[in-house]
């Protein structure tokens, strides 16, 4: 699903990623870890085409991203469900409208979109909050809204950047269970997290980044 081939990224003089190789198979779930500044965000940004690599090849869903021009970026991003640490919800939108945003962009009509939004909200257990503003929800609930928005378009790949960063351990475990549920129905999941305690309790491979260099189990490192 995601393949990095000798990917390097340099910001001015600083090497954020150095000749990185890994391969996340279709339907797999993996964690990406390393302390802050190790290159986690850079790696996710390369997958989202928020950045372009200095050298090497990033392949997502069999598509070489270097082949995509600026106009093709939105279509690429629509294939990926993205979950942020700070949830990035729009506070002047209702919960429903936040979740419906990816569908609106994809041109769904109200009826189909309503059905999908409610299905997504049901999955994260917040069906009864659709009319509220995200502002009145707890941070755990806000994060779940963010996840509902990421899955509403039924993406093949979910990327999460520190999704449990602001949550207590119980809530974090609950969020991770959600990701596992999506993975069980065939969605590929890559989660950047530095919550080692939580990660180690879960049966998924871990990719480690250290000063832009990558290491991990052979299953992920082979090409």
């Amino acid at each position: 699903m995601i393949r990095f081939e000798q990917v390097s990224k340099k910001y001015h003089d600083k090497h954020a990623l150095v000749r990185t190789n890994f391969h996340l198979q279709r339907g797999d779930m993996a964690f990406l870890t390393g302390h802050s500044g190790a290159g986690k965000s850079t790696l996710l940004k390369l997958i989202m085409l928020m950045e372009r690599p200095t050298s090497g090849k990033v392949i997502v869903d069999r598509q070489d991203l270097s082949q995509l021009n600026r106009a093709q970026v939105p279509a690429h991003r629509r294939k990926i469900g993205l979950v942020f640490q700070d949830h990035q919800l729009l506070l002047d939108y209702s919960v429903f409208d936040n979740v419906a945003l990816p569908l609106k962009i994809s041109g769904y009509n109200e009826r189909d979109s309503g059905r999908r939004v409610r299905a997504a909200l049901d999955k994260v257990g917040l069906l009864d909050k659709e009319k509220l503003s995200p502002q009145v929800l707890s941070s755990g609930e806000q994060q779940r809204i963010g996840i509902a928005r990421a899955i509403v378009n039924k993406p093949k790949l979910i990327l999460a950047d520190e999704p449990t960063g602001n949550l207590d351990p119980a809530l974090s475990a609950e969020i991770m269970r959600l990701f596992q549920q999506f993975n069980q129905v065939g969605v590929s999941v890559l989660i950047a997290s530095h919550d080692l305690e939580l990660i180690q309790r879960l049966p998924h491979p871990v990719i480690q980044l250290n000063q832009g260099r990558i290491s991990g189990p052979p299953s992920l490192m082979r090409q």
Partner: peptide, 16 residues
């Protein structure tokens, strides 16, 4: 700006 950023991240086109 915030709304535009989020729309770009979830794949909104320039036309949209």
């Amino acid at each position: 700006k915030q709304e535009i950023l989020v729309i770009k991240l979830v794949g909104g086109t320039d036309a949209y």
